[in-house]
């Protein structure tokens, strides 16, 4: 159900954006829009289906944990 809501929302968004882009013949913008809309819809559908999405913070943590530990060690 939730996944369908997402798809409906994506369709609505496309319905708002695409016609005017096509009228003005903006090929590149259309492709960029389509790409990001697919990514966004994909993410939302995964979220709606309760699929575990890898947290963006994991790689950030991996990089910055040593730095933050160092700072903490220095300031203790």
């Amino acid at each position: 159900m939730a996944a369908f809501t997402v798809l409906a929302a994506a369709l609505a968004v496309a319905w708002i954006e695409v016609p005017s882009l096509r009228k003005r013949k903006r090929r590149k913008e259309l492709w960029v829009f389509a790409f990001f809309l697919c990514v966004a819809t994909g993410l939302n559908v995964l979220k709606a289906l309760d699929v575990e999405i890898p947290n963006l913070f994991q790689p950030i943590n991996a990089v910055y944990k040593p730095v933050s530990d160092l700072i903490e060690g220095m300031l203790k």
């Binding site: 590149k28 913008e29 960029v32 990001f36 966004a40």
Partner: peptide, 27 residues
Amino acid sequence: LLRIENYRVLTFPFGMMLYVLSLMVYP
């Protein structure tokens, strides 16, 4: 970055992504 003239086309997809991200960033 992508050299598109109108950033507005990105707002809806980015908004949708933000929805997932904002719920995901902090458990």
